[in-house]
């Protein structure tokens, strides 16, 4: 029915915190099965963009279409139930709950148009988690928590997931694992939009990039184009 529409189409949204304007007429899109990355430095508006898409921040003006359906202004739980998963920057796992219970909170009914996950399938993808099902999530390492956070979102059987700075604060070895996981998810047909400041990580996982600065998209193009455009890298990313 909505086969022709892109997975996500954000058109001209603006967002505010109180009276401070964070986003300015921001537009971007994510195609089916694509991994897009939103690159920018701290405070550029990456997190706000993702929060505006999932409904945690209410965009004022503009439109957010998910698989052809307008979702701007809906409460987060309704957006998420349509198959849009969100992994926050600060992880926000439920530290008092066990690993299994954390997954249970994320569980939703399967959807015809998205890969279906179960606890067993997730434990196959994240073998570490299987070993600590009964452990309170607060007693896991940062890297394990990040994996749990992704797994918890997958329990909702999403067709698109938003990952807010998945590599932040992780040891280099764990960052490599994270990149492998994203590749695996993509190969199973998930569409992904992630935000990053780590260009090296973005390079490993994404097809296409948007560069955001001061709440505006400044540049967009394929990862390869970005790779060859030294001027853009110098101006916005300072590698």
């Amino acid at each position: 029915m909505t086969g022709a529409a892109p997975m996500l189409e954000v058109a001209g949204i603006s967002s505010f915190y109180g009276w401070a304007r964070i986003l300015f007429d921001l537009s971007l899109s994510v195609g089916r099965g694509e991994v897009a990355v939103l690159l920018g430095r701290n405070g550029a508006g990456k997190s706000t963009t993702l929060k505006s898409i999932v409904g945690l921040v209410r965009p004022s003006g503009g439109s957010v279409a998910f698989q052809g359906t307008e979702i701007a202004g809906m409460p987060p739980h309704r957006i998420v139930r349509m198959g849009l998963g969100y992994v926050p920057e600060e992880r926000r796992i439920f530290t008092d709950l066990t690993v299994a219970e954390n997954l249970e909170v994320g569980r939703q009914r399967p959807r015809a148009d998205a890969p279906e996950w179960s606890v067993d399938k997730l434990f196959a993808l994240f073998p570490n988690l299987a070993e600590m099902q009964g452990r309170p999530a607060g007693r896991m390492s940062g890297g394990e928590q990040q994996m749990l956070c992704v797994a918890r979102t997958l329990m909702g059987n999403p067709s698109l997931i938003l990952l807010d700075e998945p590599s932040e604060g992780l040891a280099p070895v764990i960052v490599d694992q994270m990149a492998a996981t994203i590749g695996e998810l993509k190969s199973r047909g998930l569409s992904i939009l992630l935000s990053e400041q780590n260009l090296r990580f973005a390079r490993m996982v994404s097809d296409r990039a948007y560069i955001i600065e001061k709440g505006r998209i400044r540049w967009q193009g394929s990862m390869d184009d970005l790779e060859s455009d030294e001027a853009v890298k110098q101006q916005y990313l300072v590698v």
Binding site: V54, P76, P88, F94
Partner: peptide, 13 residues
């Protein structure tokens, strides 16, 4: 879960 982070429970549907 909501006792710890109710917004996140909403963001999980």
């Amino acid at each position: 879960a909501a006792t710890q982070d109710r917004e996140m429970v909403g963001a999980l549907g």
